[in-house]
């Protein structure tokens, strides 16, 4: 066989996959048996692997270089940009738009003025008890004084069953993962002899959200969605299906509404 008649090993996908370790295990033995009888393919494979190793080791020497502070700063800047981008896409995505619309419709009877007007500002505003308590929980982060029980994320199923019993009402933990937040802890607090379920969330940028659910007694008001600000924290609160809800985070008014919509859903 002449040189020109010999098949080019570079055109054999099995040989390439063998060298790069992507060949299915059941085919490895098959290729190895073939290599045992094919000196040209064996030499090609050995050299590809050797050159690959040389290049890999050379590339890996970049890891020995000291950290480049300018690169680190740009990396942080890019992470912030991409996080915002992720947030915007989620916030304006069809699912959240739909739930945001449903919450805004829920509040529509009160009008936009009521939605963003009442409770905005610091001076002397009195919030409902369940909002004040959630704000205290968020600010103090896990207020021990009122705690009856605390659960970690991995205990959430059992926690929800137990808390539902205590509150004599079925509750569920809001799913905020599509907004980039994971539940960290859930607690049952007791305030004025009333159970309050509090959920703490955090995103990869270490931003926290506190969500509370409090059973609404028949004589208590039924709150439409309100958005307020206090000491840099945004609060959204409303009542629905026998529960009062409060959501608190250091964010803007649009985002807190989106979060409220996600909690409501």
């Amino acid at each position: 066989m002449t040189r020109t008649d010999t098949p080019d090993p570079g055109l054999d996908p099995d040989l390439m996959a063998y060298v790069d370790g992507t060949l299915a295990p059941e085919r490895m033995a098959e290729i190895e048996a073939r290599l045992a009888h094919d000196a040209q393919a064996r030499e090609a494979v050995a050299q590809w692997r050797h050159f690959g190793n040389l290049l890999h080791d050379y590339a890996a020497s970049a890891d020995d270089r000291p950290e480049n502070l300018q690169i680190a700063a740009l990396e942080r800047q890019l992470a912030r940009k991409l996080q915002k981008r992720r947030w915007r896409v989620v916030a304006f995505g069809p699912v959240v738009q739909r739930i945001a619309a449903s919450v805004l419709l829920f509040a529509a009877g009160w009008g936009t003025h009521a939605l963003y007007g009442s409770g905005t500002g610091n001076g002397g505003t009195v919030y409902p008890q369940f909002v004040s308590h959630t704000l205290a929980e968020h600010t103090a982060y896990k207020l021990a004084a009122f705690e009856r029980a605390s659960f970690e994320a991995y205990e959430m199923d059992a926690a929800l069953d137990w808390m539902s019993q205590q509150m004599q009402q079925k509750i569920d933990s809001p799913k905020l993962d599509r907004l980039g937040y994971q539940v960290e802890t859930a607690r049952l607090a007791v305030v004025d002899n009333q159970p309050v379920a509090v959920f703490y969330y955090r995103n990869p940028d270490n931003e926290r959200i506190t969500v509370s659910m409090t059973p609404r007694a028949l004589e208590q008001p039924d709150y439409s969605l309100r958005v307020a600000e206090r000491d840099g924290e945004r609060m959204a609160y409303w009542s629905s299906e026998g529960l009062h809800y409060a959501v608190i985070a250091a964010t803007d008014a649009g985002s807190i509404t989106t979060l409220a919509a996600a909690v409501q859903e």
Binding site: L55, Y58, A59, A60, S61, A62, D63, R65, I71, E75, R76, L78, A79, L82, Q83, R86, P204, D205
Partner: peptide, 21 residues
Amino acid sequence: MSLKTELHTHVGSLRRYALVL
């Protein structure tokens, strides 16, 4: 894996690739 961690891993890969280039 958080976005920051993922990005940091990729920047390491970029530095390795750029060194060979």
